[in-house]
């Protein structure tokens, strides 16, 4: 397969970037999208050119590190999948592919396609936990949790922190990310005691960090690799106004 690539290149946080054209041949349909970029970089490196910097690590959809804006969509052409799971068979031979970083004021571009998502850590540090010290806890089976509750809590807890929700929201809102953690912990008996304090401090932090308000368009849940529902945002709002 052959592709025309238009890739965002930006030397660092403080310099303006632009789209640069590349051509790549010999791509195989079973290659992952990131392996296609590896192939491009291999060519650039042996020519002594700077390779394209992009975020990636586990390449199995769970670490949340990868995240590209491909042809105008966070994580590319499919719904609910990480960039590392996009394969070249999703494109047609000869296609032009636009590759950009996740864009949001809360996620400054570090270099090329890499962005700084440390704001997410700050939101968690503000209250995304249960205040229990390690080494102390009651017998696990003394806290009964119905299968439905455990499953529903898991649905929210599955968030990988990739930031596709922010990148796909026209307000660059972090509502889905923040709501997922609030909902996960508020549903469990262990997390109920702190629920009020948690939602107030996490939402406050989210606002401080420059993320916009929820746009209510549902764009985030389409791109969320874990399929986290926007109903959790409703839960967050309910918790907030309780």
């Amino acid at each position: 397969m052959h592709f025309k690539l238009k890739i965002w290149r930006q030397p660092n946080r403080h310099t303006k970037g632009n789209l640069v054209d590349y051509e790549l041949s010999g791509v195989e349909p079973d290659m992952s999208f990131l392996e296609m970029l590896d192939m491009l970089n291999e060519k650039l490196i042996v020519n002594g050119e700077a390779p394209v910097a992009f975020d990636h690590d586990c390449r199995e959809g769970i670490c949340g590190q990868c995240g590209l804006f491909i042809n105008g969509r966070a994580h590319g052409p499919h719904d609910q999948i990480t960039t590392c799971h996009v394969h070249m068979r999703a494109f047609k031979d000869g296609d032009t592919i636009f590759i950009e970083p996740f864009r949001a004021s809360g996620f400054p571009v570090q270099k090329d396609l890499k962005v700084d998502r440390s704001a997410f850590d700050e939101i968690i540090a503000a209250g995304g936990f249960i205040s229990v010290n390690t080494g102390q806890s009651p017998e696990a089976n003394s806290i009964l949790i119905s299968q439905d509750t455990a499953e529903a809590a898991f649905d929210a807890a599955a968030c990988i922190g990739c930031g596709a929700c922010v990148a796909s929201c026209k307000n660059a809102s972090a509502a889905l990310f923040t709501a997922a953690k609030i909902s996960h912990l508020a549903q469990l008996p262990q997390g109920k005691l702190e629920r009020k304090k948690r939602v107030l401090s996490m939402v406050k932090k989210m606002d401080e960090l420059g993320f916009g308000a929820c746009s209510s368009t549902g764009a985030c849940e389409v791109e969320c690799p874990q399929g986290i529902s926007i109903s959790h945002i409703a839960t967050m709002n309910r918790e907030y106004f309780k």
């Binding site: 229990v132 080494g135 806890s137 696990a140 806290i143 996960h184 912990l185 469990l188 262990q190």
Partner: peptide, 8 residues
């Protein structure tokens, strides 16, 4: 302990 932390 993991249960106390909220591991589902």
């Amino acid at each position: 302990q993991a249960v106390a932390q909220g591991v589902p």
